[in-house]
């Protein structure tokens, strides 16, 4: 049973050494399992450790102690290059601030993960086009980020996150920089992606956004406060 988890965190602790005797315990032993095709929201006020947890799940950071298995592979002891490979192939990031390369057009932004994965140029173009069409930007491929609206930028980011067919989609406040209507559009997109079989982990501090997920993990002071299934899911439509 354990083997079917995409993410398996056991007693994860993260301690930041602030210099001198001072240290901050961002995570004080978090254990969480997330299965395939789950739609999970991680919630908590600022300082609760949700960002730290996201960074660890996203292999951007390593825990001070504890076990982290990604698809049953121990990633807590991986070196930088191995982590880079996991980030490249297994995790699709969507950030609050989009984090697109400003000088590159949409197509090249989406191609980027494929470049680091060593995909050939023609194949890269094809896959990137496909991913952009998938998020409804088939006609915007040659636009640069500053020529796109906020919602369109986030769609490019989603296309980039999905282009390598990762095991999870990791979104950090994906609607935080969008107005509510555009935010809703992104949430609709997430809903669709989930229906298509993607595993989505959403980090947010907005209850309204979190309620789109199927499961909410609430953090407080570096510990899990609650881990609940959402009963009355907000069904969301484009209208």
């Amino acid at each position: 049973m354990n083997n079917s988890y995409v993410i398996n965190l056991q007693q994860i602790k993260k301690i930041y050494d602030m210099g001198g005797a001072e240290e901050v315990q961002a995570l004080r032993g978090v254990s969480v399992q997330i299965g395939k095709n789950e739609y999970v929201a991680i919630m908590g006020p600022s300082g609760s450790g949700k960002s730290t947890l996201m960074n660890i799940i996203g292999c951007l950071d390593t825990p001070t102690s504890g076990l982290y298995e990604f698809n049953s592979i121990n990633v807590s002891e991986m070196n930088d290059n191995q982590l880079a490979k996991v980030r490249n192939k297994e995790i699709g990031f969507v950030f609050q601030t989009f984090n697109l390369l400003a000088r590159s057009n949409a197509l090249h932004n989406v191609e980027l993960p494929l470049i680091y994965a060593g995909v050939s140029s023609a194949e890269r173009k094809r896959l990137a086009h496909e991913a952009l069409e998938h998020v409804g930007l088939g006609d915007r491929v040659h636009h640069k980020p500053n020529e796109l609206s906020g919602g369109q930028r986030q769609r490019v980011a989603v296309a980039r996150a999905l282009v390598n067919r990762p095991s999870i989609l990791l979104a950090d406040e994906p609607t935080g920089n969008l107005d509510s209507k555009t935010g809703d559009e992104i949430m609709v997109l997430f809903e669709e992606l989930h229906t298509q079989g993607n595993t989505i982990i959403l980090v947010t501090h907005e209850e309204y956004i979190a309620e789109h997920a199927h499961r909410i993990i609430r953090l407080r002071d570096g510990m899990i406060e609650a881990d609940e299934i959402v009963k009355n899911r907000k069904s969301i439509t484009t209208e």
């Binding site: 290059n81 880079a84 980030r87 192939k89 990031f93 390369l101 680091y116």
Partner: peptide, 16 residues
């Protein structure tokens, strides 16, 4: 710096 961060987040290795 930010661009480097983005590249790393989506899988660029040090050598890249």
């Amino acid at each position: 710096t930010r661009e480097i961060g983005i590249r790393k987040a989506i899988g660029a290795r040090k050598i890249n």
